[in-house]
C-alpha cells in the first residue's frame, strides 16, 4: 500500500522556481529518502504534502486521502520535524510538549517520558534557554509523541551532535520496525545511505530518479585499479562499459559498468601484481545528478 502518492505535483512562485511535475510513491513501512542539493525543491514538496502551501498543479495523497482537502484528518497520524525548529519561547519544554499532545485525542504522556529519556532531554528547562541541538530534540519528541504512522523529516539532523544523531537514527529505525513509514529529506548522502530503503533524487525542482539504494549502487560504475608487471597500453581495456582509462607507469585505472565477467576474463590475460575494485560511494553516484549540465 502506498502511504504517500504524489502525482504531477507542481508549485510555481512567480518567477522563482518551485517544483515541476513531481511524481513518486512512498510505500507503507519503508524509510524513503528524499535527496537533493539545497534549493532543489525538497522543502517545497514537503510543505505541499503538509498543506502548508498549496500546489499550482497535480495532487498528492496521504493514506489515500487528498492532502489538501483532508489535511486536518491526515495530520492526526503525521509527525513532522521541520529543518528549523522554533517554538513558543517563553514556555517550558514540558508545557510545549503538553500543548502539542493536546491536539491529539490520546494520552501521550508515557511516550513523552520515553522519548525524553532516549533523547536525553530536560523537560523542566525553558525553551528559550536551550541550545540549537536541544531545541532540535524538543522537535524530535514533539514529532513522535503521538506515535504517528507517517513521519516527515525535513533535514532533521542539523544541530545534533554525532552521538545524538546516532540515537536519533536508532529511534527512527525502532519506530519504523513498529510500522511507521518515514519520509526523510536530506542533502547529506551518508545519512540517507545509512537509513533509507529507497530514494528519490530531486534536482532543480524535478525528480531525476527514484530507485532502491541497493540498485543505485549496483547499476553504477565500479572503480578498477590494477598494478601490473609490465606497462600496459590503455588500448588494452577498450571494452564496452569501460570509461576514463588512465595509465601511469605500471598502474592502470578505469571505471567500469556492465557484466563484470568480461573485465575479469580480460584481466586474466595479463600479469597482475595488485588489484583494487571499489564500490563507488553514493557521493560519487549522486555527484553526476548534482552537477548542472553545462
Amino acid at each position: 500500500m502506498n502511504v504517500i502518492e504524489i502525482k504531477n505535483l507542481t508549485k510555481t512562485y512567480g518567477k522563482a522556481r518551485g517544483i515541476t511535475n513531481i511524481s513518486f510513491n512512498v510505500e507503507e513501512g519503508e524509510i524513503f529518502g528524499f535527496i537533493g542539493p539545497n534549493g532543489a525543491g525538497k522543502s517545497t514538496t514537503i510543505r505541499t504534502l503538509l498543506s502548508l502551501i498549496y500546489p499550482t498543479g497535480g495532487s498528492a495523497k496521504i493514506f489515500g486521502k487528498d492532502c489538501i482537502e483532508s489535511a486536518h484528518e491526515i495530520a492526526k497520524d503525521i509527525g513532522y520535524l521541520p529543518s528549523e525548529v522554533f517554538y513558543y519561547d517563553n514556555m517550558k519544554v514540558m508545557d510545549l510538549l503538553k500543548y502539542s499532545a493536546s491536539f491529539y485525542k490520546k494520552d501521550c504522556w508515557k511516550r513523552i517520558m520515553e522519548l525524553a529519556e532516549i533523547m536525553d532531554l530536560d523537560l523542566n528547562k525553558k525553551i528559550d534557554d536551550l541550545s540549537l541541538g536541544n531545541k532540535k530534540k524538543v522537535g524530535i519528541v514533539q514529532g513522535l509523541l503521538h506515535d504517528p504512522k507517517l513521519i516527515i523529516l525535513d533535514e532533521p539532523t542539523s544541530g545534533l551532535d554525532p552521538l545524538m544523531q546516532q540515537k536519533f537514527f536508532e529511534l527512527l529505525e525502532q519506530v519504523n520496525k513498529k510500522g511507521a513509514t518515514i519520509l526523510f529529506s536530506s542533502h547529506i548522502l551518508s545519512e540517507v545511505q545509512r537509513l533509507c530503503d529507497r530514494v528519490a533524487i530531486i534536482k532543480e525542482g524535478q525528480i531525476v530518479q527514484v530507485e532502491k539504494i541497493s540498485i543505485l549502487k549496483e547499476n553504477n560504475h565500479k572503480k578498477f585499479k590494477i598494478e601490473t608487471k609490465e606497462k600496459i597500453s590503455p588500448a588494452f581495456f577498450q571494452l564496452a562499459g569501460v570509461n576514463n582509462v588512465e595509465a601511469h607507469d605500471d598502474t592502470i585505472s578505469f571505471l567500469f559498468r556492465g557484466d563484470i565477467n568480461t573485465v575479469m576474463r580480460k584481466m586474466a590475460e595479463i600479469d597482475i601484481v595488485n588489484l583494487w575494485i571499489e564500490e563507488p560511494d553514493l557521493e560519487e553516484i549522486f555527484m553526476h545528478y548534482y552537477v548542472k549540465e553545462a
Partner: peptide
C-alpha cells in the same frame, strides 16, 4: 509550522 501541521 508547528500549529498548522496539527490536526486542526
Amino acid at each position: 509550522d508547528f500549529l498548522l501541521t496539527k490536526p486542526v
